[in-house]
Design a protein around this nucleic acid. Structure first.
Lengths: 208, 208
DNA sequence: ACTAAAAGAGAACTAAAAGAGAACTAAAAG
DNA sequence: CTTTTAGTTCTCTTTTAGTTCTCTTTTAGT
């Protein structure tokens, strides 16, 4: 398999980054417009290279079906209305560890909300009694406020992230673990920024 | 199942997005007007493709009943490689309670296997210490065997279903809860049929 | 500066889809 | 019972989308 040229990668990145904004798979014409190209023939050659690289689905069995990315193109998950960005890992006391590449993860409707959401993978067992284990994925609704008793992604002093129950009053913010061997942490309200609220959780039991 | 063309997807998107605004299921004529088409014959072909894709209900048994979306389409979770059949609820000591209509649920790749899988909703807290709470959804790989220590869907005496850890020997099958207030249950091997093995778990924290 | 390769434009071709419209049939409505 | 509606089938035409190819320009490396 040939190495992709810069231009081919540019076009692939464009496709991947804008996949969700196409109501249905784009035609060559639509993509030409979007890429400011005027020749379907030129674009076709680039698409062929991406097909050869297994990043774009072959047109065989897909007549006038438009340009579709393969599962491989998005690290085995397709960016569509069923998926959310999987942006990294959350471990208490550290910044969120971002993934190297944009990835998407398919998430059932009932685990997310109408508001923008994203996925994090949990490290640690500070919330084990709440049924959130090390390695679990959590679905987070982007929000900068929460009700007391909700589980939030909190940013502390603009550097450390953590997933905890929250109890807020005028004088302090309490971040409470769900693990009997761990203590609640108290902060001044201005130390704590809420980045989101837990709306879903997922775990794999597959043997690896 | 054939891949849908762009036009077919456009029409499906239109149907899904406007389904609520039709007082009753639209006829081909009504849809033609809405889509600025003048030939019912042309539209009929598109609808047939959507029927074939199980996004629109078949006309059989639905004479002059209009165009109706399937539950799958309405669930906004299209049956594709990302979704699994959600077949019912599992509560210890009862048969699996099947859902009235076939439903599909989008499941992340990492929560399922290459083998056929399905989704059940858990009732009860017999597996709470394993992080499986009442109301959680579990992904089950269809299998009639399991290793000791795996969590299985077991059918007992061909009538009762339950989700438990399994320990098997020649003389007995132990089904173990993950709840300290509950005891293990012992059965003769011929009493127990393994229906599947737990491969994934999901929970919603959305306020309802 | 030179050269090879990539990229792009554009035209022509081809296959397939889409659409129109007519006729037919079954079912519902009057 | 008759008429109307809604679905069904089919043929023909048009449009769309993909495909191939040549030529020119641009880019990147030497």
């Amino acid at each position: 398999m040939a190495v992709l040229t810069r231009r081919q990668l540019e076009i692939f990145n464009f496709l991947r980054d804008n996949y969700e904004s196409f109501a249905c798979p784009p035609s060559l014409d639509e993509l030409c417009s979007a890429l400011n190209m005027s020749s379907r023939g030129s674009l076709y050659k680039h698409i062929l290279a991406l097909i050869n690289a297994e990043l774009v689905e072959s047109f065989v069995g897909n007549k006038q079906g438009g340009i579709r990315l393969t599962p491989k193109a998005l690290n085995n998950e397709i960016a569509n209305e069923q998926s959310l960005p999987f942006i990294g890992c959350i471990a208490a006391g550290k910044p969120i560890e971002a993934l190297a590449n944009t990835r998407y993860m398919t998430v059932p409707q009932v685990l997310k909300t109408n508001k923008p959401c994203y996925v994090l993978q949990v490290k640690g067992d500070s919330m084990i009694d709440a049924g959130i284990f090390d390695g679990d994925w959590v679905v987070i609704e982007q929000r900068d406020y929460a009700n007391n008793g909700e589980i939030v992604v909190a940013l502390i002093d603009n550097s450390e992230a953590t997933l905890k129950y929250i109890e807020q009053s005028a004088e302090q913010v309490l971040l409470l673990p769900a693990n009997s061997s761990m203590a609640a942490m108290s902060y001044r309200p201005e130390q704590v920024n809420i980045q989101g609220v837990l709306v879903g959780q997922m775990r794999s039991y597959r043997s690896h």
